[in-house]
């Protein structure tokens, strides 16, 4: 199917993009790789009168390391992140994940910012970025604001981004000592994904996040508390802690997995992610 007709805008500066988003706020979407947005528009599941293409604003693609923070422009493609030497060196879990999203064509076009803003319930990067405590920087005519990645997505295809806001960049604090994302993929969709992050600072709480299971990524607080209290211990109590977190989630049957099977997979990937960080800790 074809998308319904729309007006296409191609600003070459951020100022121009912000102005266009404000002018057309009633019916506008930022447009980046299009791998999700165009699909939704082709299926007439989403319609916008105006698309503001951000791809000609080169500063939105930049990847920089500023001291202890890795800053990734929202328009960086999955392929660019996977191939970036600074990201491979400082956050191999993110580079590895971006190198295995969907397929080579989606990785060549799709962007990390678009992935976050579209908030598809089966997307992997938002889970890892929430566990890493990434901060998102958004801009509109009202100015810039920062939102934690863990607070950004609020439901299926729902975020706290205002209709005229543009995601500028993702700032990731490089405070983790061990990081792992584990997932199970059926066909081309992730059925369950879990991220575990152990900080360099022994007093900082471990973070365990689960995604691709409920409508959006969620923390597993009982699992986090168990890992904090029993570092390096992989026992039945850990499995029970994870299971108790997952039992509280509202999980529906879908075409990829029944709710029961998905709960089982969710527990499995969470254990695998935590186990991998324990192994990384032992090697460190």
């Amino acid at each position: 199917m074809l998308p319904r007709p729309f007006t296409y805008h191609r600003p070459t500066s951020l100022d121009e993009a912000v102005t266009l988003m404000a002018r057309h706020v009633d019916d506008v979407s930022p447009y980046a790789g299009g791998t999700e947005l165009l699909l939704a528009m082709k299926m007439h599941f989403a319609d916008y009168e105006h698309l503001v293409d951000l791809k000609r604003i080169s500063e939105l693609r930049a990847v920089k390391r500023n001291g202890g923070t890795l800053s990734i422009g929202a328009l960086a493609t999955h392929a660019a992140i996977a191939a970036d030497a600074a990201i491979q060196g400082s956050l191999p879990a993110l580079a590895g994940l971006c190198g295995s999203i969907a397929n080579a064509r989606v990785r060549a076009a799709g962007t990390i910012g678009g992935n976050l803003c579209f908030a598809e319930p089966r997307a992997d990067p938002p889970v890892l970025l929430a566990a890493l405590d990434a901060q998102l920087c958004l801009i509109s005519a009202r100015g810039e604001r920062h939102v934690a990645a863990s607070q950004f997505i609020t439901g299926a295809l729902e975020t706290v981004r205002a209709p005229d806001e543009i995601l500028l960049r993702i700032d990731i604090p490089l405070t983790a000592r061990s990081t792992r994302y584990e997932r199970v993929v059926h066909g081309h969709r992730t059925v369950a994904g879990a991220a575990a992050v152990i900080a360099q600072d022994a007093h900082a709480a471990p973070r365990v996040w689960l995604g691709c299971v409920a409508t959006h990524p969620v923390a597993l607080p009982n699992a986090e508390a168990h890992v904090a209290a029993n570092p390096g211990v992989l026992d039945n109590a850990l499995t029970q802690a994870i299971a108790s977190d997952i039992a509280r989630l509202d999980i529906a049957d879908d075409e990829d997995a029944s709710a029961d099977y998905r709960r089982h997979l969710a527990t499995t990937v969470a254990i695998r992610a935590i186990t991998a960080t324990v192994e990384q800790e032992e090697r460190a």
């Binding site: 296409y8 299009g34 791998t35 165009l38 699909l39 082709k42 392929a79 969907a102 397929n103 080579a104 064509r105 989606v106 060549a108 076009a109 081309h188």
Partner: peptide, 22 residues
């Protein structure tokens, strides 16, 4: 829907799904 690869073309050398590109 970008799954099968039959519509693949190269754009500036990168492989893309021409079904989901304007």
């Amino acid at each position: 829907m970008q799954v099968c690869g039959a519509c693949t073309v190269l754009v500036d050398g990168r492989p893309v799904s021409s079904c989901t590109m304007l």
